[in-house]
């Protein structure tokens, strides 16, 4: 379980880095979505291997529960990441409406031409 999670985190970080370095806003946006999720998953994986452990809620299970703290933390982080993503979408949409382009290179080049 730990190995798979580690691979998934690495995969997500890789995808995110690749997408953020693209020119198109839409890809950059997806890159950030992947990035926040990679960080969240990484945080969650810090509670250790869940095998042979019970969920950290009140139940009759004789097994010891997994460490609940990273799960509590990741809830906060998910909410924050969600808010940021929504804000980023709105900002990029506004820039698209103003500049009529989703290509970050041409967006900042036209400005350099004005000066």
């Amino acid at each position: 379980m730990q190995i798979e999670t580690a691979l998934l985190v690495a995969f997500l970080f890789g995808i995110a880095t690749y997408l953020i370095l693209q020119k198109s806003f839409v890809r950059i946006l997806f890159g950030f979505v992947a990035l926040t999720n990679a960080a969240n998953l990484f945080m969650l994986a810090m509670s250790g291997s869940p095998e042979g452990r019970s969920a950290p809620i009140i139940n009759d299970s004789p097994l010891p529960s997994v460490d609940p703290l990273p799960q509590a933390l990741v809830l906060t982080a998910i909410v924050i990441g969600f808010g940021l993503t929504v804000y980023l979408i709105m900002l990029l949409y506004r820039i698209f409406l103003d500049a009529r382009t989703t290509d970050s290179e041409s967006l900042f080049k036209s400005e350099a031409g004005d000066e």
Partner: peptide, 28 residues
Amino acid sequence: QDIKEAFPYLAVNIFGSALFLSAAGLAY
């Protein structure tokens, strides 16, 4: 005209936040 300058600010800081979260996880 100016609002596009907010994008690099946002992008760099969101990247920083994701890194901070990972660092906090690592520290834990």
